[in-house]
């Protein structure tokens, strides 16, 4: 049964007709072609599908698209300005070699931006705890943690 869905994605209003069982991540990837949000495990463990729903990090593979009805969704495509420059957190991941194969990176960045929003000056331990729901199978965690700390600093605007 198709249901009407209206929401805002990366600042733009979107209206679509979806099957009730459509997952938010499939809606973003298949209907809107926003393929920056990845499907890693599809069981809500790896966090590669992390997006922001009304400002909070969520796992888009574990939500129905209809649960985002009327909400504001931001994906990795929506964090950087239109001129193509990187978000400070993305820039920090590049600068500190926070990615190897890059598959987990969109989820890591979306988690990190959300976390830094509530803890602007995180310690290394706090970053590791905050990234509990994001798995990197290249196991490049050390540089990811360093990237998030640097990204937090950049988001605070301190040199």
């Amino acid at each position: 049964m198709a249901v009407s869905l209206s929401l805002t994605v990366n600042g733009k209003p979107v209206t679509a007709s979806v099957e009730a069982r459509t997952l938010l991540v499939d809606f973003l990837r298949e209907h809107l072609n926003l393929t920056g949000t990845h499907v890693g495990c599809d069981t809500a463990q790896c966090g590669a599908c992390t997006v922001h729903l009304d400002g909070k990090a969520v796992k888009a593979c574990n939500l129905l698209a209809l649960q985002a009805q009327g909400s504001k969704v931001v994906t990795i495509e929506g964090v950087s300005p239109a001129d193509g420059t990187l978000h400070p957190m993305q820039a920090a991941f590049r600068e500190h070699h926070g990615l190897q194969c890059g598959f987990c990176t969109p989820g890591m960045v979306m988690s990190a931006i959300d976390f830094v929003g509530v803890n602007a000056v995180p310690t290394e331990t706090q970053v590791r705890e905050a990234l509990d729901g994001n798995l990197c199978r290249c196991t490049g965690y050390h540089n990811i943690v360093q990237s998030v700390i640097a990204g937090a600093k950049a988001m605070r605007g301190t040199p």
Binding site: L63, S111, G133
Partner: peptide, 9 residues
């Protein structure tokens, strides 16, 4: 409980 993203929902 779970992880940050699970706790948000």
């Amino acid at each position: 409980i779970g992880d940050r993203m699970v706790r948000n929902v």
